[in-house]
Design a protein around this nucleic acid. Structure first.
Lengths: 112, 112
DNA sequence: TTTAATACCTTGCAATACAAAGTATATAAA
DNA sequence: TTTATATACTTTGTATTGCAAGGTATTAAA
């Protein structure tokens, strides 16, 4: 037997579609590395775990949206700092538009 | 060779998370059947196709969010009119909250 | 009987988030 | 030197989901 929380699933689904958008938005403001990104997203109540974030960063790097550099850490292994590229900024602009469209669509459906 | 449009994919991803929410929202206002739902969603620029909608309606029915009745059509086979249940309305309220949270999270990430 | 207009449903595929486990690096303590 | 601790990066297996494409079924008119 297992208790299922459909609403948790829904929230997870809603996050799914905007995760890439969130990552690019954060990196557009300043370079960052995985654990710091996770912390920042957590603060915005947009929960992400390692197993989600790392493949996503690699995907965006392969698409040419991000690059990275290595940087020493005060403690532990070096950090992979990701930086947004010009191509990434262009993609982000389109994502802004896509997001606004979705928000408008929902409003239309709720009120129209 | 194949041309890929990452932005179209992103938009599709963003829609993914809110489709169930949209369906419930529409049915909360009035009963409807699949082709009419597709038309209404299309008008709100929230594109859905048959192969997506039918399994989704069946899922929501199995979760107890929807029921249905048969109704004659002026032309062609009878229509399956879906109706939201009390349980569906309760779920919708939680989805409203989940959606508002996501919208706030994005705002926080963009501006904070 | 055939055609046209609708409507409902299923199958196979690709993309994605997640849980869990694994690997690696640097420093301090034993 | 060895061990422990803290930190960071990566991979694997699984479940869910939307979609393209194709299939089935019903009604009425030609």
């Amino acid at each position: 037997m297992e208790i299922i929380h459909p609403i948790e699933n829904i929230k997870s689904q809603m996050r799914k579609g905007v995760l890439e958008y969130c990552i690019l938005s954060i990196l557009a403001k300043k370079d960052s590395y995985a654990p710091a990104l996770i912390a920042e997203l957590k603060q915005a109540k947009m929960i992400v775990v390692e197993g989600t974030l790392y493949p996503l960063l690699i995907r965006q790097k392969n698409q040419g949206f991000l690059t990275y550099r290595w940087e020493e850490s005060p403690q532990g292994p070096p950090r992979k700092y990701y930086m947004i590229t010009d191509k990434g900024r262009a993609a982000l602009q389109e994502m802004d538009q896509a997001w606004n469209e979705v928000v408008e669509s929902i409003k239309l459906i709720k009120n129209g």
